[in-house]
C-alpha cells in the first residue's frame, strides 16, 4: 500500500514523469530526484521559507507538500525563474545591495519577493517586511533584502508607469 505513485507534472516548463513514494515531499523530490538543489531545506516544518517554490503560480512551502500532490501541477523553482529572466532585475538588485551573504535563504527570498512585486507594484518597506515575514535569514539582518526589493519595485514602476 505504501507503493510508489506515478505522477506527471511540469517543472520549469519541462514535462516530468516520475514514480514517487507517497512520503516524499516536494522539496526532496526537486532536490534528490530532479537535482534541482536551488530549493533549500532549512526546517522541514514550514517555518523557515528556504524551500519556497511556485506551484501553479502561487508560492508554497515545498517541504509541506507531497510530491504526489503535484500531479498535473506546474512547478517553478529558482533555477526556472533565473533561466527565464523573470527575476533578472531583482537578482541584480540583490547583487548590488549585497542582499545575500551565505545565500542559503536567497532562493526562497527571491521567490517571496517576486510574489510580492507581482501582487503589489509599489509596496512600502513595512509591506515588504510583512510579506517576507515567513522567510528566515540569519546573515543579513533583512535590511539589505528590503532595500533590494524596494529598489526593484521603484525600477519596475519606472518602466511601466
Amino acid at each position: 500500500m505504501t507503493a510508489t505513485v506515478a505522477i506527471a507534472l511540469s517543472v520549469n516548463g519541462e514535462l516530468v514523469e516520475a514514480n514517487v513514494l507517497p512520503r516524499l515531499n516536494l522539496a526532496d523530490f526537486l532536490r534528490e530526484h530532479l537535482k534541482l538543489t536551488g530549493t533549500h531545506v532549512g526546517c522541514e516544518h514550514g517555518v523557515c521559507g528556504a524551500c519556497t517554490v511556485r506551484v501553479n503560480g502561487d508560492i508554497v512551502r515545498s517541504c509541506l507538500m507531497l510530491a504526489v500532490q503535484t500531479q498535473n501541477a506546474a512547478i517553478e523553482t529558482i533555477e526556472g525563474l533565473s533561466d527565464s529572466g523573470e527575476i533578472a532585475d531583482l537578482q541584480s538588485a540583490f547583487r548590488e545591495r549585497n542582499a545575500l551573504q551565505c545565500g542559503f535563504c536567497t532562493p526562497g527570498m527571491l521567490m517571496a519577493a517576486q510574489d510580492l512585486l507581482k501582487q503589489s507594484p509599489c509596496p512600502d518597506r513595512e509591506r515588504i517586511r510583512e510579506h517576507l515575514s515567513g522567510n528566515y535569514c540569519r546573515c543579513t539582518g533583512y535590511q539589505a533584502i528590503v532595500d533590494a526589493i524596494e529598489s526593484t519595485a521603484w525600477a519596475r514602476r519606472g518602466r511601466r508607469p
Partner: peptide, 9 residues
C-alpha cells in the same frame, strides 16, 4: 494567519 506561502495552501 501565518505567511503568504502558507496561506496559499
Amino acid at each position: 494567519i501565518a505567511h503568504p506561502a502558507i496561506r496559499n495552501r
